[in-house]
Write a protein that binds this DNA or RNA. Structure first.
Lengths: 347, 347
DNA sequence: CTGAAAGCGCTTACAG
DNA sequence: CTGAAAGCGCTTACAG
């Protein structure tokens, strides 16, 4: 159906080999011959078949990006970084947005079938061993076919896995949050954690708890509510906190989206931010600056993480040490001094 | 390097043909033979080479999605619809985020090289003829290799192009906006248009102008400012309007992102929304409900558009009529009755 | 039910 | 500088 190189060669009156050489431009060809072939290519609107080419090279030049949800601005930002760096290398990026493990593995297998050169897996992972084992097997398979694997903001499934690693220094972000909270006199902190059993949930929860502890602020488990890492998840979790009658002067969320949901739930409950409750997010996705009050949060260099992941994949044979990206505390308008409980109640 | 079907066949002690038949499961094979092959596949962790397969089929099963900017929530939402529908068909979606025409064509050519089955092109396009001609040529090329082409929220490059079309009935959204504005007594409307020379800019600008005219409200060209379809674009355009000393009681933006920027610029200039100025967006992306005041806007069924585009691509041989999706006016808190100029000035 | 062989569209030594 | 031929990894008539 489609035009083949044989068609081009025939029309130009040369051999297949010569036509191929003109296309690839990596071999001396007489000027006149070149022109004839180029004309035939134009006349026929010939486009090389990437599959035939990949068969020879045992590789496709494709970059696979596996992530939890492309419509989450967190991943959109990482994707932007991946795309822009891949583009400078003229590489195709296949984005695989996989809400669950099953889909994720299906995508990874598709990437293996297509002999992707590079596979970048970003974001939270389930913590169970079956998942980890299955992923480790895929990692071996990818290495076996010569692909480069990079994990971004998630742990490698196995210490021995030959893979690149890009991570955020979120611990320092949590330290900044804890100090900020302490400086404003907060001692009753509610926390909106992510869904239980996922790596990001645990890492962030632990990070906040440890940082608060350094500041001698307890993190009462009754003030911790789990939910999806979304606006709705944050809204619902906050409502549960409120209707349980819990007292807290500040609320931290596992990510900005949840914090935005918290803002809405608090408002709907008649609580003012930051007068009655202070709120802090995490990530600094675009919406954080546009809510009212503007959200105090921690900025993760997401696009840079994407870029670095690609760079790591194309770096030398062996993977260098993990790339650890620093984060920045961004104080805005959603935190104020703690008010004692009674004052809030009567507000 | 990677395991091939020949390795599997050898380990199972059968021929290539038999091994292939077991893998494809579309041909009778003795149970014992099947088991031997399946064991070999597992032992060797064999994954078929999609390129070899595509060479036979002259197709790859790949869906290409070409859009302006994946980190724009407008496209993120469309993408979600495309992905979820593609997933039910177990298809890979390649997302090509192309900020300019050059990149876009590079991506389309990559998709042609990979023999993509389906190419969906979404969003604004340049209006010049050279672009249109070049795109029409690619469209012919794609058809020539048996690919299905669908345009989403953008015109086809040529009336003869065999392509599917998914569009929004934005005219009715603008009619609702115009009536809403009239009912609130607004007669001096500022408009934040998109970048000049792009199809979406023109269509939306014309749509608003026509609807306002029906309501006997003029759209003064001095109150129209162009800018990128982003928060920053909206912020800058609004600042220009303000510093030019223009008077307006309401401001409409080509999309929500620009409207969010306008909200910020208005606030920074000491103008209150909606008391001093009413603001209306377009699209209803998630941020619209989380700004303060919540943004009055028009909801486009973006995810549905993505789903329908995929469905259209897989529908019968000939493309049905364009799919036209209805939109919905979403009144929220950013519009109030118009105040006469002097009152605003003294506010 | 199983196997030998042709062929998908290209690139690349190998000859000339 | 150019061409004939082998081969990349698979599937599928064609025989048996």
């Amino acid at each position: 159906m489609a035009v083949t190189l044989a068609d081009v060669a025939a029309r130009a009156g040369v051999s297949l080999a010569t036509a191929s050489r003109v296309l690839n431009g990596n071999y001396p060809v007489a000027e006149a011959t070149r022109r004839k072939v180029e004309k035939a290519v134009r006349d026929l609107d010939y486009v090389v078949n990437a599959h035939a080419r990949a068969l020879l090279h045992a590789t496709s030049g494709m970059i696979g990006l596996v992530l939890n949800d492309i419509s989450d601005p967190f991943f959109a930002a990482i994707t932007r970084g991946v795309q822009s760096t891949a583009e400078t290398m003229r590489r195709l990026v296949v984005i695989c947005s996989s809400p669950d493990e099953q889909t994720e593995f299906a995508y990874i297998e598709m990437l293996r079938r297509h002999r992707a050169d590079v596979v970048i897996i970003a974001g939270s992972a389930p913590e169970d061993n079956a998942y980890r084992r299955a992923l480790a097997a895929h990692a071996r398979g990818l290495s076996g076919q010569g692909a480069r694997l990079v994990f971004c903001d998630r742990p490698t499934p196995h210490r021995s896995a030959r893979a690149g690693l890009v991570e955020f220094d979120d611990a320092s972000g949590y330290r900044a949050i804890a100090r900020h909270l302490r400086d404003h006199g907060h001692a009753q902190i509610a926390y909106l954690a992510g869904p239980p059993g996922w790596t990001t949930t645990t890492r962030r929860h632990d990070g906040l708890a440890a940082a608060l502890k350094e500041c001698s602020i307890p993190l009462d488990h009754r003030l911790v509510q789990h939910g999806e890492l979304s606006r709705q998840g944050g809204y619902d979790a906050t409502q549960r906190l409120i209707s349980a009658g819990e007292d807290f002067t500040a609320l931290c969320a596992a990510n900005d989206l949840m914090a935005v949901g918290a803002l809405a739930a608090l408002r709907d409950a008649g609580l003012r931010v930051p007068v009655d409750v202070s709120v802090i997010g995490f990530d600094d996705v675009p919406v954080a600056q546009d809510v009212t009050p503007a959200l105090t949060t921690v900025r993760l260099p997401l696009a840079e993480a994407g870029s670095r992941a690609v760079a790591l994949a194309f770096a030398g044979r062996d993977f260098a040490d993990p790339v650890r990206l620093s984060v920045r505390f961004v104080p805005r308008d959603s935190v104020a001094d703690a008010h004692p409980r009674t004052q809030r109640q009567t507000a």
